[in-house]
Amino acid sequence: MSKAFEPSENSDSIVSVTDRVRPIEIGMPVSAVHFLGETAVFVGDEEMLTFVTGSGEAARLPVHDGAVLCVASDGKRIVTGGDDGKVVEVKADGSVATVATDAKRRWIDNVALHPDGAVAWSAGKTAFVRSAKGEEKSRDVISTVGGLAFAPKGLRLAISHYNGVTLWFPNMTATPEVLDWAGSHLGVVFSPDNKFLVTSMHEPALHGWRLADARHMRMTGYPTRVKSVSWSADGKSLATSGADTIILWPFASKDGPMGKEPGILAPMPSRVTMVACHPKQEIIAVGYSDGTVLMVRISDGAEILVRRKVEQAIAALAWNAKGSVLAFADADGNAGLFTL
């Protein structure tokens, strides 16, 4: 770590690695980036993925006939949902397979991946799960699905919607458990230890439940909606966007963040739009609405500048699995790769 992350001794100046970033022009608006092995895959707003190798070579791959509405990756595959009603799976070798086509060509609003190979997606109020063996099941919830997440253990899918989250075991006939909280729940994540579930709401707030007893956890005070969340390498903190600093909620204790102040890191005169925790070290990469990208050490808040501000907000930010490369892109498709 010492070699990879060397912030300045002097807190008045910030160490910059901007000259070590390899700039890449994606040539279209970008909404996300994921790594397949060592290849960074930038997800365009429409139609295309762009594969960028470590040496900076870029190749485009068409996946949808229209907008790419959602994406998920487990490092081995990328699954996207489009406004063409298709769920598409892409592998590192560039092979593309259509997982499903909605019978009514509805928009595919959400996708989620299970480590065993299962895929989940949603169209309107219906969540679908296809197991690794290809068996497909579906479940309707009370309103349009806001987000999907597989639990870290077992085949259990969290489906967020208006006024709460449905926890569904696709292989069991029992009535799913519903966690209630008034409002519209969009993104949803499980904590890596499977003890907590957190949703990002339509209003600028997160809501959480302790899964053992459905105890509520309100996480409020954001000026804007939280659109990016990322668990720290040790799984004990949740980094979040939405404020002019990283807001880091502590989940180490059995009560989660209740009764505790969140950590505040990397304040800037700009909004945090993307957060990506390093997969192994206690470092968070953070992108802002003015295009700045920083790396921040959780222990002491030390910062390293990866990209100076431009005009467009950072829309995509991800580490490779080893944590040796950071990829970012702004909403206009001006991207970069930084090798530690």
Partner: peptide, 25 residues
């Protein structure tokens, strides 16, 4: 849906938020 801001007539079309977001792509 009702916004959680204590204002009972503050209702919003959540589907519209989602669709406009998708359309902007």
């Amino acid at each position: 849906f009702e916004m959680n801001n204590g204002c009972i007539c503050c209702t919003v079309r959540g589907d519209l938020v989602r669709i406009l977001d998708g359309l902007m792509k």
